[in-house]
Design a protein around this nucleic acid. Structure first.
Lengths: 230, 230
DNA sequence: AAAATTCTTAAGAATTTCTTAAGATGTGAT
DNA sequence: ATCACATCTTAAGAAATTCTTAAGAATTTT
């Protein structure tokens, strides 16, 4: 990850410094700005490969800054926001952000997402989004279209159902415990040990399986969890 | 959750001990420190996989300790703090922590969050090189799929059976006493010295051996224990 | 306000785990 | 070599756990 210049924009000094520490440990060069105006200046004066952009900032906020930046340059942008408000998320991505992280964030996750964006930058040059389609014996997921089909038939999944299917299909063959599924779909641990996941599994089977009682795709591994057949 | 070292840092002895009890029941190894300075020493002298860090501590507080630790190592950190503490301060420092728990906390929640972070650590930590497949003369274990095959044939193991096989296969050649097997699979000592392990061994042999009476893979070492042939 | 989605609860079905006890086998002492 | 003893193997059924399913309540979206 050397030879990359990442611009971090946030009005909170602690956050700026914390992010700097994580990214420097990965070998990237870190530039800092405390608001959108400053960020624009730095973007015009330097070769920036990626921008980490806080949404809430004085003077010029993250969304406005994104517009301004994208008018001139096509640099990958990862949005940061204090709350996990889905409205922010949608707005941020619509506006042209490539990824989105909510505060408080996991430093390792931040690093992983930054690396992921930088890799993409290298391979594609511009943001493009490769076709992400997986076909498992007739069960097909299109991650761009967020659509699942069984032998060509469109399966109408709810958002949670889709997320579970996506998790299992992108890791086909791997077994996920109920706790793991909950955590990765809901983004928080499930310490009440409710039956929620099991019910969703049932609903998904109803939609993707010919015979939900003898599932062909979504298999249980007794005492361990569920997996999607490879 | 075996083979993990968790460092708990708190100046209150009762809390330290309570947390130790909860975590040990999950099979993790617990190390303790009563302030940030002590914590730093332990971090540098041991392989720590996760840190539970109180914010309010004498000498070196949690925030400062986080910075110091993160300068050198990228270990997941879960912050502990009383609800009454300054929210602004908390918000600022959340950036450096991977998760955050307020006191008084629900033990189950604490355990769930610790497990969650450790899982994440594993996935991020072992990243790519982690093809977890072992082949011992045709007996193959896939630790992602939680699946065992003998010469391509899938062996349907129960969770306990799987765990025993996993233990023996990942330590092929090493002999484990019955007590050792019990402890590592059940996460607790076997007080009553029942016949449980032996029965499971029998069941496993029935499934993985051609002739269970003359086992090729799962061998007994008289008076000592069992091992998987390398 | 209606519709869709998500969550909770609980009962029963399926599967696994444990206990018991009797038989088989290996070991060391004589 | 044989015996006594400890260790291991095996079978069967009872107990416990885990999964499936349905129905309706709570919440969110349209």
């Amino acid at each position: 990850m050397q030879n990359y210049n990442v611009l971090v924009v946030d009005d909170e000094k602690e956050i700026l410094e914390a992010i700097e520490i994580y990214l420097k440990s990965e070998g990237v060069t870190v530039l800092k700005a405390k608001d959108g105006i400053e960020a624009l200046e730095i973007v015009h004066e330097n070769e920036i490969h990626l921008i980490l952009l806080d949404i809430m900032m004085p003077r010029l906020d993250g969304i406005a800054a994104t517009y301004k930046i994208r008018e001139k340059k096509n640099i990958p942008i990862i949005m940061l926001s204090a709350k996990s408000e889905d409205t922010d998320k949608i707005l941020g991505l619509q506006v042209g952000a490539d990824d989105y992280i909510t505060k408080p964030f996991n430093p390792m996750e931040l690093v992983a997402r930054v690396k992921s964006q930088l890799r993409r930058y290298v391979t594609f040059g511009t943001f493009n989004g490769g076709k992400k389609v997986i076909d498992l014996n007739g069960l097909v997921i299109d991650q761009d279209a967020k659509q699942v089909t069984v032998h060509g038939e469109i399966v109408k999944l709810t958002p949670i159902e889709y997320k579970i299917v996506e998790l299992l299909m992108t890791n086909a063959g791997r077994v996920f415990s109920i706790d793991e599924i909950y955590e990765r779909v809901w983004n928080e641990p499930n310490y009440n040990a409710e039956n929620t996941v099991a019910v969703h599994i049932r609903k998904i089977r109803e939609k993707i399986e010919i015979d939900p009682k003898n599932p062909r795709y979504l298999k249980v591994v007794w005492g361990i969890g569920y997996k999607m057949e490879k």
